[in-house]
């Protein structure tokens, strides 16, 4: 069975990655192979296997406030800031 094709430039643009033609070819082959493994897995008949119910409730949090960072600490790694806001390139609508 042939490995499924993946549009690597589409995936790269969604991830904001710029790939060289070499990288594109290399990653296309690698990711197609991974998808091929998934196809193999999906051929296993699981219809009769009951869905696994999570055994227990995961840890949930009570709705009680805990201390936040200080404004100074929160902003300490921001490349640019003004009026206690983190500055970013202008967001265009």
């Amino acid at each position: 069975m042939s490995a499924p094709q993946i549009n690597i430039s589409d995936v790269a643009s969604l991830a904001r990655l710029t790939l060289t033609p070499d990288e594109t070819a290399k990653f296309s082959a690698q990711l197609s192979q991974i998808l091929g493994h998934m196809e193999t897995l999906s051929q296993i008949a699981t219809g009769a296997v009951p869905e696994v119910t999570p055994p227990a409730q995961p840890a949930l949090r009570q709705d009680i406030p805990t201390p936040s960072l200080s404004i100074e600490a929160a902003l300490s790694n921001a490349p640019a800031q003004a009026n206690d806001l983190i500055l970013v390139p202008r967001i265009l609508e």
Binding site: R61, D63, I64, P65, T66, P67, S68, L69, I71, A74, L75, N83, D84, L85, I86
Partner: peptide, 21 residues
């Protein structure tokens, strides 16, 4: 009282960046 996945206060109108973790 608090945010969805952390204990920071869920309140509007306070100083910017004061309810973060």
């Amino acid at each position: 009282q608090t945010k969805m996945f952390c204990g920071c206060t869920n309140h509007y109108g306070d100083a910017p960046t004061s309810h973060v973790c």
